[in-house]
Write a protein that binds this DNA or RNA. Structure first.
Length: 476
RNA sequence: UCCUCAGUAGCUCAGCCGGUUAGAGCACAUGACUGUUAAUCAUGGGGUCGCAGGUUCGAGCCCUGCCUGAGGAGCCA
């Protein structure tokens, strides 16, 4: 007889049928009730042990974390708090778990502590909820794009280009760091390195996605990206996953429509498929926020916030309009902004938060930023001052998506690259897309962990990826 | 990288103006109880006060440096 997943057992009508289950003990109460979890659901199965019929030696080995297999009769629970329970007839201990050494206790642990034991934290309801939602969202992303005619492209993890200039790079090398080969002029001789030139981990799959979009019309990438920036914030990781769709024949409004529709689909998917997990996470978040001062709490509970984002259309405005709003805000007149508002500057976190949380109180799409603060590949507007960029700002998270319509005109692109000192020679393959059958096209990048943060309500990004990589932290 | 705060038992924390043998709850062990829901009750064990210096008759507490963590900022997704 094979063990049945707890998820499936809880769907059976209990009528004293014999079932077998395996899992890990969460708590053992009253020398009589085992709360068993196997990860198939965040719900636990209550096992009732008649302590008079089992040897004391066996029962003494049952602690939080012990793995067991139980065979018994499935009956309606006599107690409150659960619908089903299994009256144990046979109980085998698979793996013991010393209660003196096992760090997880049947009590609340701080997220900081659990982060230090990331190899064990998945055994908590919080992290099971988060990672189930994460898994579901990853699946939903593929489902969404596959249903909409997109081709999944695997962009390379190791690249030799730093075209985007998006942050510091992780260098990839097989050179002996204790004996680095040098050229006659004393520089590192990369001709001896594995690729014969400097290589690094990718910071974005966008440029490769653009190449593919010129063949398949609609493509997306979904893979890990790496930034060696020394950023220590609850919103940044050195290794994170990014979704980057790229669409030929799409202009900026089409790009915005797609991004908004996709985000709503993903949130709706989580809503439909993980009600128990989201319910639990909402509970967790509201308890966490009881510790915070009133003005730092979320304006609405998690499920309400998600529902709100699905129903409301995102506010769309240009960078210039946003600056106008900020300049004329009472906030600005009372000089509450630390950074003065001025056309041409990059919006600071406080400005973005004002727009999203005070002015509109819903997701905001900002477009047409000054070209000086955006990447070389963004399509230039006729005003010669702005580019067809778009950023989607979410409450609590900030920028969740950054995208643009790409510059498809070869001369304009080359001119911009010259201005920004980007080598046209190294980027010949990218420029070829504009030489051979160029078309208007657009795309964006979605930070997967930031999406998971938003949907789960977790305040620190290190708690939505199983093994976070951050400066000075590469454990497990 | 910058600013702020924190580091005391396995966990969460208290520790007064620098003064005797550093405390609590939970966890753990032992016993009692046995339809519990982080069970309950009683008893007990458990400390390199982050690390290294310094000031002082005396430092968990004051000073300096470093390490680690958190929050904010910058960079961004």
């Amino acid at each position: 007889m094979k063990p049945i997943l707890i998820k499936n057992i809880l769907q059976l009508t209990p009528q004293s049928q014999t079932v077998k289950v395996s899992g890990w003990v969460r708590t053992f109460r009253n020398n009589q009730f085992i709360s068993l979890n196997d990860g198939s659901t965040i719900k636990n199965l209550q096992i009732v042990v008649d302590f008079q019929n089992f040897p004391e030696e066996l029962l003494k080995k049952i602690h939080t974390g012990t793995s067991i297999t139980v065979t018994g009769k499935l009956v309606p629970s006599l107690g409150k708090g659960q619908t089903h329970e299994v009256v144990a007839e046979a109980l085998d201990i698979i793996g013991e778990c010393s209660p003196e050494e096992y760090p997880l206790q049947p009590k609340k642990h701080s997220l900081e502590f659990l982060r230090e034991i990331a190899h064990l934290r998945m055994r908590t309801t919080t992290f099971q909820s988060v990672f189930k939602v994460r898994s579901g969202l990853a699946f939903a992303i593929h489902q969404y794009f596959q249903q909409h005619g997109f081709v999944y492209i695997h962009s390379p993890i190791i690249t030799a280009s730093d075209a985007e200039g998006a942050g510091e790079l992780f260098q990839v090398t097989t050179l002996n760091l204790n004996n680095i080969p040098k050229t006659e002029t004393g520089e590192v001789d990369f001709s001896e390195d594995f690729f014969g030139k400097p290589a690094n981990l990718t910071v974005s799959g966008q440029l490769e996605a653009e190449l593919a979009a010129m063949a398949f019309s609609k493509v997306y990438t979904f893979g890990p990206t790496f930034r060696a920036e020394n950023s220590n914030t609850p919103r940044h990781l050195a290794e994170f996953w990014m979704i980057e769709p790229e669409m030929a024949f799409y202009e900026l409004p089409d790009n915005m429509d797609l991004a908004e529709d996709m985000l709503k689909y993903l949130i709706q998917y989580a809503f439909n498929n993980f009600p128990d997990e989201l319910e639990f996470l909402q509970q967790r978040q509201s308890e966490e926020e009881k510790q915070k001062p009133q003005n730092e709490r979320s304006s609405m509970p998690l499920l309400e916030k998600l529902n709100f984002c699905i129903k409301e259309s995102f506010e769309r405005l240009t960078y210039t309009q946003a600056i106008d709003i900020l300049e004329n805000s009472s906030y600005n007149k009372k000089k509450k902004f630390q950074f003065p508002v001025q056309w041409g500057m990059d919006l600071q976190t406080e400005h973005e938060r004002y727009l999203v949380e005070k002015e509109f109180n819903k997701p905001v799409i900002l477009t047409d930023y000054p070209k000086a603060i955006k990447a070389f590949y963004m399509r230039q507007n006729d005003d010669d001052k702005t580019v067809r960029a778009m950023d989607i700002l979410f409450p609590g998270i900030g920028e969740i998506i950054g995208g643009s319509q790409r510059e498809e005109r070869l001369d304009k692109l080359e001119q911009r690259m010259k201005e920004m000192r980007i080598s046209a020679k190294d980027m010949y393959w990218y420029l070829d897309t504009r030489r051979f059958g160029t078309v208007p096209h657009s795309g964006f990048g979605l930070g997967f962990e930031r999406l998971v943060q938003f949907v789960t309500g977790m305040s620190n990004i290190r708690d939505v990826i199983p093994f976070p990589r951050t400066p000075k932290n590469c454990e497990f």
